[in-house]
Design a protein around this nucleic acid. Structure first.
Lengths: 136, 136
DNA sequence: TTAGATGCAAAGGGTTTGCAACGTC
DNA sequence: GACGTTGCAAACCCTTTGCATCTAA
């Protein structure tokens, strides 16, 4: 029985939104996702995209990233990982080679008398392209 | 000579805004700051508060924090440090006992072919009060 | 005197929401 | 047949901006 409050029904719209988001690692905005989804489902509305992104984030299927610009960006990779934001072109990329350190959570708990569930790390700087352009 | 473009003039409004922000560690919103500043300068406008917060952030005197809720919060402590966000009451606190690790920036640079200027860390969990309330 | 800063209020704009119709289970 | 979802569009609301006026330097 799944008649409990908050039951989430399967819909074509949400499946497609998740598929689109899973197919990219560019951390797109809601509007970009909307544009992509419209190609396959022209009548979908922006409101539906926002509602589903919210639900998927609640379910832990995706992550909402808020920083830098006023837009939210969405990450279709559900594994916790660190992000890098280019201060020049605003590109967001997944960081490689530096795994999430969960020990630091315990350190924070001990020193601050709190309970830590997880943490996020954002690195700010120049991406490969912008770094190389600077040097010219 | 300070006639270069972008010169910033000293004003009573900005001094007061900075004073208010420096006097708290609650990471207030622009609106809260506005309310405090109004007590001493009743005619100040919200627009002025936003404009000055923006300038102070540009100057590196304060930091703008964007995460969690839709509001921006401002941190009057200019030293780079980590933050903790309570997922229950949305309080934001400065983390103690875990200094900023700048070596990780070099690690990211080596593994991702980027230039890193700085990084931010956000811990999510239950603050002391909310943690204790849960247990009751 | 000159250009940056302010106050006021209107505009911006990403995101949310109310509602009737629709689709899933 | 319930009730979660959708599409549409208007509402939200934090933040930004235009402009005439003021003021620091």
């Amino acid at each position: 029985m799944d008649t409990q409050k908050g039951f989430i029904r399967k819909t074509k719209q949400r499946d497609l939104i998740l598929k689109v988001l899973r197919s990219t690692d560019t951390h797109p905005t809601a509007d970009w996702i909307y544009e992509q989804v419209k190609k396959e489902m022209p009548n979908i509305s922006l409101g539906t995209v926002y509602r589903n992104l919210g639900k998927l984030a609640e379910l832990g299927e995706i992550t909402e990233l808020k920083f830098g610009s006023k837009y939210s960006r969405f990450d279709g990779n559900p594994d916790n990982h660190y992000h890098f934001v280019c201060t020049e072109c605003e590109k967001v990329i997944d960081v490689k080679g530096c795994p999430v350190d969960e020990e630091i959570d315990r350190c924070i708990e001990l020193n601050n008398d709190v309970k830590v569930f997880f943490h996020k790390v954002l690195f700010y700087g120049l991406c490969t392209d912008c770094k190389n352009n600077e040097q010219e």
